[in-house]
């Protein structure tokens, strides 16, 4: 198991390298630069800036310098926001984004799995149909619509929860953004779970388990749950990615100080350092999450381990 995890970890290195390289060059190919403002700067200042940020060197040399710095753990300076370097900016937004993303992730997984199990066990009866309707709503209504509706109902009319902002960081401020962020994922996870569990419950080994006189709870928990989780688990990697990057919109609607807004500003301003830094950050996060998913997979299915 440990060897398997190590092997998977090593195989992520080339993935990261390819992604950083692709990002670096695509960004440079895009027209415009960080210092192209509405009012043109004098040539001398431009040259100085370029020299300061190594922009005057050949592209390939810039690339090597950047890779070298990244290997040392230095994500470099921000081109726009001179007071803070990339790492500092990311770190300042990170706690908010991470809190929001993780809470939404945990909520989505738990709620999705439970809803899926309920749907499978009460297949084609009232609870299943109600869940199905809810899932459909979760999938089709976009979050920029759900968010204001929830804000109106729970924030303004009922006055149960704050409308936005981080406030003192208490749970009350998190509830609405987490729900909005998690909703479509609850829907997807519960659909996957329901389908997989129905299939597993029809399999030969469940028939064997039933022939052994095991109780229904025991059959579901011990025999059916693990294999039925497989498709859900393979969705968790991408889902985690969506939740973290997708929080950009939710952060904006609820006015939360996460990484999302840095990312948008940086992209608009051609802040090479900041964009690359954010991309690397998200990538590492997604790669690590996928790694966790793979390890979960091996835990769920002994056949994966021997491959």
């Amino acid at each position: 198991m440990l060897a398997y995890a190590l092997k998977r970890l090593l195989s992520t290195i080339p993935v990261l390298w390819i992604a950083i390289t692709a990002c670096f060059f695509i960004l440079r190919l895009a027209p415009g630069g960080p210092f192209d403002g509405e009012r043109p700067l004098p040539q001398a200042i431009k040259d100085n800036l370029a020299a300061h940020y190594n922009l005057d060197k050949p592209l390939i040399e810039q690339y090597l310098i950047y890779i070298g710095n990244v290997l040392k753990g230095d994500l470099g300076p921000s081109f726009i926001n001179q007071d803070f370097n990339v790492a500092e900016q990311l770190l300042s937004g990170l706690p908010y984004t991470l809190t929001l993303g993780t809470s939404a992730f945990v909520f989505a997984v738990l709620a999705g799995i439970l809803a899926g199990i309920a749907g499978a066990l009460y297949k084609n009866s009232l609870p299943d149909y109600l869940l199905g309707l809810f899932i459909l709503l979760g999938l089709v209504v976009p979050n920029f619509l759900v968010a204001p509706i929830l804000q109106l109902v729970f924030g303004l009319q009922l006055d149960w929860l704050p409308v936005g902002g981080w406030g003192d960081g208490s749970i009350a401020f998190l509830v609405l953004p987490v729900v909005v962020l998690a909703l479509p994922h609850i829907a997807r996870i519960s659909r996957l779970m329901r389908g997989a569990l129905i299939e597993v419950l029809n399999s030969n080994y469940i028939r064997t388990a039933r022939s052994k006189g095991l109780s229904r709870t025991r059959i579901v928990v011990r025999h059916a749950l693990k294999p039925a989780l497989m498709p859900v688990v393979s969705y968790l990697g991408p889902a985690a990615g969506f939740l973290l990057t997708g929080s950009v919109i939710v952060e904006t609607i609820f006015g939360l100080p996460g990484i999302g807004r840095y990312f948008i500003n940086a992209a608009l301003n051609r802040d090479y350092g900041m964009v690359l830094g954010t991309v690397i950050f998200y990538m590492v996060l997604i790669v690590v999450l996928n790694l966790i998913v793979d390890i979960l997979y091996a835990w769920l299915d002994p056949r994966v381990r021997t491959q």
């Binding site: 399999s203 030969n204 080994y205 028939r207 006189g213 056949r303």
Partner: peptide, 18 residues
């Protein structure tokens, strides 16, 4: 499973894989 038990045709799929 206690007084009446049963075995099936396909041994490859009749045991819980995990």
């Amino acid at each position: 499973g206690d007084r009446l038990s049963m075995i099936f045709q396909d041994p490859l799929t009749s045991l819980t894989p995990h």
